[in-house]
């Protein structure tokens, strides 16, 4: 077996992707938890910590480029590196969604919540779960799992619809809730988008293993069924 050094570097890069993934998973769930607890201090900390996510993404990207430039990877190795470049971009965006939720937390500020948060934490947990599975599929090169994950997006979309209808009821009952209800709707939107982006990661897993560029359908989003 030759190219042990290259193989080690490629493996380490995938480990880094998993570390970045767990940072994003934590940020997502925590952003909603902080909102639920009305923890403004925590929200500020989470916003600051997004910088670490961005830095890690750029570090992984730089390492990928160095490997491409110096090792001339081919075939499966090349696809792995191309996939990593795509996946870290998706992860960074998901991190931005978590940061967005923390910002909404600050915008709501000291006001009490118009409703107890039940479905939003569920959405966050489900999105995190899907993300975790997709990265698992990537490191294990599990195409079957990657193909199965996007269907779980229906659950997130279902919760999104529920949150949307509920908030609409609050708005209609009391126009003073409009501001906050709209902000909470943005939270739901961010979580829904996160789950959609998991689908992109699943597409990259299939590409890494098979070389096929497939488009997986995660775009039957909540709004379409309401309009």
């Amino acid at each position: 077996m030759v190219r042990q050094a290259f193989k080690r570097k490629l493996q380490r890069l995938q480990d880094e992707v998993l570390i970045l993934g767990s940072m994003v998973e934590n940020a997502l769930v925590e952003s909603v938890e902080l909102l639920k607890r009305r923890d403004l201090e925590g929200a500020r900390r989470l916003i600051a910590e997004d910088r670490a996510i961005n830095e890690k993404r750029f570090a992984i990207e730089a390492d990928c480029l160095v490997l491409i430039a110096t090792q001339q990877p081919m075939a499966g190795d090349l696809r792995t590196l191309a996939a990593i470049l795509e996946i870290v971009t998706e992860l960074e965006r998901m991190g931005d969604y978590a940061k967005g939720i923390a910002k909404i937390n600050l915008m709501i500020g000291e006001q009490p919540l118009v409703k107890p948060l039940i479905d939003l934490p569920r959405m966050a947990l489900k999105a995190r779960d899907m993300l975790h599975q997709s990265l698992d599929a990537f490191v294990r090169r599990d195409v079957d799992l990657a193909r199965a994950i996007p269907a779980q997006d229906d659950e997130v979309d279902g919760l999104y619809n529920q949150v949307y209808r509920e908030l609409l009821t609050y708005i209609m009952a009391d126009p003073r809730t409009i501001d906050q209800a709209t902000q909470l709707l943005w939270v739901a939107h961010n979580l829904e988008r996160t789950a959609d982006r998991v689908t992109n990661i699943c597409e990259r897993v299939v590409f890494t293993v098979t070389g096929e560029m497939v488009e997986m359908d995660a775009e039957h989003s909540g709004f379409e069924s309401l309009t």
Binding site: V2, R3, F6, P73, M74, A75, G76, D77, L78, R79, T210, G211
Partner: peptide, 14 residues
């Protein structure tokens, strides 16, 4: 980018 034979994959990836 996507050879069909495993031997090719192993050869070109070193």
């Amino acid at each position: 980018t996507n050879p069909k034979q495993e031997l090719t994959e192993n050869y070109i990836t070193g």
